[in-house]
Design a protein around this nucleic acid. Structure first.
Lengths: 201, 201
DNA sequence: AAAATTATTGATTGACGAGTCAATTAAAAA
DNA sequence: TTTTTAATTGACTCGTCAATCAATAATTTT
C-alpha cells in the first residue's frame, strides 16, 4: 500500500475510534491510549499523527461536520421545491448516520469542548451558521420576512431534540423528532398534504 | 454561630463555588482544590462534607434543579389563565438567575455527566418530566389533544435555545429566546394580542 | 544494495489530582 | 473545668495520563 494511504488510513481509523470512544464513555475523558487501542495502533502513533489529544478531538469534529455537510448537499440535490429541500435538511439531521448515539454523544461533548477551545467554538459556529443559511435560503421564498425567525426556531429545535437524544429519551426517536420539526413547519408555512406522510405512524 | 449552620453554610458555599467554577472553565475538569479555594476552604473539607467530587457535582445539580422548580412555582402563583402560566414557565427558563452563563454552562456539563452517572441521568429526567408535565397541564385546556406534542416541542425548543446560549451566540439573548418560544405558542394556540407586547422590539 | 524516509512502538518522564489520614483547633455538653 | 464532639487542614499516597524519545521495522528512492 502506498505510504500516503497508510497515513490517511491511520488518521481516519483514529478519528472513527475517537468518536466511538467518546460515544462509549459519553465523555471527553477518554485516554489517547484507549482510542489508539480501538484503532489498533499505539498511543504514540496517535500523538505522532495528530500532535495532541485536542487536535485529535478537533479532527473528529471536522469529520462529523464535513460528513454532515456532504450528506445535506446530497439529500437536497435534485429536489424541486424549497419546502422539500427544507425537509431534506431536517431529515439529514436525524439520519441514521448523524443520529447514531456515538455521534450525538460526540456532538454534545463538542459543545462542551467549545467552551474551552477557540477552534472547537469556531467549528461549531461554522456549523450553526451553515445550517442557518441553508434553511434561510430555502425558507425565504416561502416565508419571506418570517424566514429568519423560522430558521432560528428550526435550528434551536433540532439542537434541542439532539440533546434529548443524548439522554436516551426513548419516546423521541429519529422519526418522532423529524415529525415534530415537520409539524412545526407545516404549522407556520401551511400544510403540505401530499408529503406529510413522510413520518411513519 | 451554631454548628448545624456552619455545615449548611460550607455546603452551600461549596455548591455555589462548584457552579461558578464549572461556568468559569466551561468543563467538569475542575479540581476539587479549585472549587474549595473559591469557597474559602481546604479541599479536604470538601471531601469531608461531600465524600467525592461526583457527589459534589450531583449536589450542585440538585441545587440548580430545585431553585428552578421553586422559581417556576413562584412565577406561576396567582396567574389566572393557563396561557399566562405557560408564558411564566417559559420566562422562568430564561430568567436572569437561570440563564446566567455559569448556570447554562453547568447545565450543559450536567448533560454530559448524565451519560456516565446514573444519578445525574435520573435528575435530568426528573427535570424533563416535571417541565413536560407542567407544560402539559397548562396546555391541555387550550390545546386539547395537541397538548402533548406542543409541550414536547416547547421543551426541546427551550433546551435548544439553552445550548445556543452556551455557545454565547450574541444574537440570541434571553429576550429573543423568550420571543421565539412565545411566537411559536402564539402560532399554534392562536395569538393573544393583549400580552404579545411582552418581548421588547 | 545503500541511503533516506516514513511508520511504529515500548519505555519513560513529569505533572497533576482525587481521596486519605493523623493531627490541630474550636465549639458544645457534662 | 473537663470531656466530648465537630470543624478544619497540611502533608502524603497512589493512580493516571499526555507527551516525549530513542530505537526498530518497513518502504521508497537513488
Amino acid at each position: 500500500m502506498k505510504r500516503a494511504n497508510v497515513q490517511a488510513l491511520r488518521k481516519s481509523a483514529l478519528i472513527a475510534a475517537t468518536i466511538d470512544q467518546i460515544g462509549a464513555t459519553g465523555s471527553l475523558e477518554v485516554t489517547v491510549s484507549q482510542i489508539a487501542r480501538k484503532a489498533g495502533v499505539s498511543s504514540a502513533l496517535a500523538h505522532h499523527y495528530f500532535g495532541s489529544k485536542d487536535q485529535l478531538f478537533l479532527a473528529a469534529m471536522r469529520a462529523i461536520l464535513s460528513d454532515f455537510g456532504a450528506e445535506v448537499r446530497a439529500e437536497c440535490a435534485g429536489l424541486e421545491t424549497p419546502r422539500r429541500r427544507v425537509d431534506a435538511i431536517v431529515r439529514t439531521c436525524f439520519s441514521p448516520g448523524n443520529f447514531r448515539p456515538e455521534v450525538v454523544a460526540s456532538w454534545l461533548n463538542f459543545y462542551v469542548l467549545a467552551q474551552t477551545s477557540r477552534e472547537a467554538h469556531r467549528l461549531l459556529r461554522v456549523y450553526q451558521r451553515r445550517l442557518h443559511s441553508n434553511l434561510l435560503a430555502e425558507l425565504r421564498p416561502v416565508a419571506d420576512v418570517r424566514a429568519p425567525q423560522i430558521a432560528q426556531t428550526v435550528g434551536a429545535l433540532i439542537d434541542g431534540l439532539y440533546i434529548r437524544q443524548a439522554l436516551r429519551n426513548e419516546s423521541l426517536d429519529a422519526a418522532a423528532s423529524i415529525g415534530l420539526v415537520t409539524d412545526y413547519l407545516d404549522g407556520v408555512l401551511g400544510a403540505k398534504p401530499q408529503d406529510s406522510k413522510d413520518h411513519r405512524p
